[in-house]
Simulated scan of single mutants.
Amino acid sequence: MRFQTAFPRCRRPLAWFPVIVAIVVACSVGQHEAKAEPFRAAQTAPFSSDRLSVEVIGTGPDVILIPGLASSREVWRPLATRLAATHRVHLVQLAGFAGEPWSHSDGPFVQPEVDDLARYIAEAGLDRPAVIGHSMGGLSGLLLAQQHPDRVGRLMIVDALPFYSAIFGPTATAESARPFAARFASGMLAADDATFRSQQAQSAMGLARDPAMRETMVAWSMASDRQALAAALTDVMTTDARPGLANMATPVTAVYATDADGGPPPAMAQGLWTQEYASLPGVTLIAVDGSRHFIMADQPARFDQLVDDFLK
């Protein structure tokens, strides 16, 4: 199945819609380990959920890190290790991704994990923590802030739109995207392992610039539960958070990738992100040039600085 042909309105879906182009959002942390601070003692939060688990490291103001589709929490490891010197970092792992068990067949994915994120914040006694989410994790953070504004202090969205299927044209709606989501999910479930791996290897080129990173992304994708991926993909394509933007009071920073050499063209990216977040009061939009979807991997120094600015 070639996702590129499903929506003829989109000229460059590989650059624009990584969640559909590749059912993988994970990256290698190995190349950053030498620069990371010594690992700080971690503990698993005493929180009961079949949707997610949380690892906690460091001390200080609370920061929650939410990974994207198919990702392990390890996508955040270099950042989390650095932040642990000054913050208490909560690394979320979503069920069904990167080897984590999944027990919900093809049922809903996004809203139940948003519900459990809200419950985690309440049960852990966190006072309006900062939330950073990548890709689907960014959408989850946005929904969390909309539905529970009293539980999120500020939100950073990393390369995620409030409605992913808007990439396919200004007339796209959740309902018009539903049959395409069903087609993508069905094709993914039907593919044998060899075909699926080949699809991910091809698609990974549009998600990160580094060849080693791409290989690790494919490995995380292969370790994920296909039913979980299909359920998450369906939800991502058919969840439109734009109607709730106008009433939000949570400070939001939306960071997005641009890459004239094989990724999202800068002018097109700016136009799309500006348009889709136009109704969100006070949103800060920041482009990161020379990066594809995994900004934290392609431009780590720049991303670290943006996170530090966000947390000040």
Rank of each mutant, 00 (worst) to 15 (best):
A297E: 13
Y277P: 02
F39G: 07
A212F: 10
P162T: 13
S165Q: 06
A98C: 10
A278T: 13
I20E: 06
Q31R: 13
R242G: 10
S48V: 12
F196L: 15
F39M: 10
M222D: 10
M156Q: 11
D127H: 13
L144K: 00
F97Q: 04
C27P: 00
T234G: 09
R302N: 08
D116Y: 02
M296T: 04
T250V: 14
T239S: 14
T171D: 13
S71P: 05
A26H: 12
T253N: 03
D289E: 15
A212Y: 07
H32L: 15
A26W: 00
P300N: 13
T195D: 10
P264C: 12
S291G: 07
P170W: 06
L311T: 05
R40W: 01
R242I: 13
A166H: 08
W220M: 08
V25E: 07
R151V: 04
A6T: 12
P265F: 03
G187C: 09
G68C: 09
T250Y: 01
G271L: 09
A260Y: 04
L143E: 02
R119Q: 14
Q270W: 03
T234F: 06
I132F: 01
P61R: 15
S203M: 05
A45V: 14
L14P: 00
A95K: 03
G141F: 01
T258R: 02
L306V: 04
A301T: 11
P129L: 07
D298V: 10
A80T: 04
H32P: 00
D210M: 06
F294H: 14
L144N: 01
T284G: 02
P46F: 13
V110T: 15
L233D: 01
D304N: 14
Q4Y: 04
A130S: 14
D62T: 08
E113A: 06
P18S: 09
R154H: 09
L65R: 02
P108E: 10
P18W: 00
R226D: 06
S53W: 08
A212V: 15
V75I: 12
L189D: 15
A297Y: 04
R73H: 14
A6H: 09
W220Q: 08
S224D: 11
P112T: 08
T250W: 02
H134T: 11
A249Y: 00
L65Y: 06
H293E: 12
F310Q: 03
L94Y: 02
F109M: 07
V29H: 13
L306Q: 02
G125S: 12
P170Y: 05
L161N: 03
P112C: 10
V63C: 03
Q31P: 07
A230G: 12
A241K: 02
R40S: 11
A15Q: 15
D225G: 05
R154A: 12
T44Y: 08
S186G: 15
I64A: 00
A228T: 08
V255D: 02
V56P: 00
A26Q: 11
L233M: 15
F180P: 00
